[in-house]
Computed example of a mutant assay.
Amino acid sequence: MSKPKIALVIGSTRANRFADKPAEWFANLARQRDDIELEVVDLRDFPLPFFDEVGSSLYVPSKSEVAQRWQEKVAGFDGFVFTAAEYSRGPTAVLKNALDYAYTEWNRKPAAFVGYGGVGGARAVEQLRLHAVELQMAPIRNAVHIVWADMAQVMNGSKKLEEFEHLNQYAKAVLDELAWWATALKTAREADAAAAQAKAA
């Protein structure tokens, strides 16, 4: 079986977003491993309109060409890590919108989160966990929470994320758990696909 492919989805599109820093840091840690293959996926490259389709892609094909391209991209991964900024005690609208624009492509795949903000993006992450469950994903227990005190030092240039040992430990725990779930669920999905093919033959 090939290594699970993981997407690190940058969940903000603001011009002055902080998200690039945790995305780069986390991606560098992930690429040191030999049990997963990671790709950074930037929502800026998928300028989705606010959801205005007839229905979920579970029921009817999306008309938006960007949505179709997004769904195809999502389908190619075995698990996901989302950077999660916290706006008004919740996730960014652009990330929620991106989640809504796919459905089956998310199913039976693990989801992990790298939150940041006043309480480490914890409230945004908790909401995203609920969205993930509804999309039939498997949100893992561990997460990275970059609190404001750490963010401020990174933003003013006095420290880099890799210099915070507690964050490196959290990231390792996330990656260990994500790799396990991605491998387990990939194996199960492949077994289901093989059984369905055999039944149809």
Score class of each variant (00 low, 15 high):
L185Y: 11
T104D: 12
L58Q: 12
K186F: 04
R33Y: 04
A188T: 08
E86K: 00
L161Y: 10
A194F: 07
G121D: 01
T183L: 06
W180D: 15
T92G: 08
V9E: 05
K96E: 15
A93I: 05
F26G: 03
P110I: 08
M155K: 11
S56K: 02
G79R: 01
N28Q: 10
V40T: 14
A19F: 03
K96F: 05
Q197R: 11
E162T: 05
D42Q: 03
A15F: 07
V114T: 07
S88V: 06
V9C: 02
K186W: 08
L99H: 09
W148S: 10
K199N: 04
A102V: 12
L161V: 01
F26S: 02
Y103D: 15
V147H: 13
E65C: 12
A30N: 05
V41W: 09
R189N: 14
A132P: 08
A201S: 15
A194T: 12
F26T: 05
D45P: 07
A30S: 06
D78H: 07
F82Y: 15
D20I: 05
L29I: 07
A138N: 09
V40N: 01
D150A: 07
E72P: 00
R14K: 07
Y59D: 15
Q153W: 04
A143N: 14
R17G: 05
K63L: 12
E134Y: 15
L175K: 00
K160M: 09
Q136K: 13
A67D: 02
R129E: 00
V94I: 15
G117Q: 02
F82R: 09
D176C: 03
A195N: 06
N16P: 00
D176Y: 02
F80Q: 02
P110Q: 06
D45S: 10
L167K: 14
K5I: 03
D100H: 07
A173Q: 14
W70T: 06
D52W: 02
P139W: 08
W180L: 15
A124W: 04
A179I: 10
S62R: 11
N28C: 02
S88Q: 09
G118V: 11
D100Q: 09
K63N: 14
K172C: 08
H166V: 13
A122S: 10
G79L: 00
F51R: 03
D42E: 09
L99G: 10
L161A: 04
K21P: 02
D176A: 03
T13E: 00
W25I: 01
W25V: 04
I140Q: 10
A201C: 06
V81E: 14
N156P: 01
A19D: 07
T13F: 00
R31Y: 03
A173H: 11
A193C: 05
I10K: 12
G117M: 09
A179T: 11
E163N: 10
P61L: 13
L167I: 14
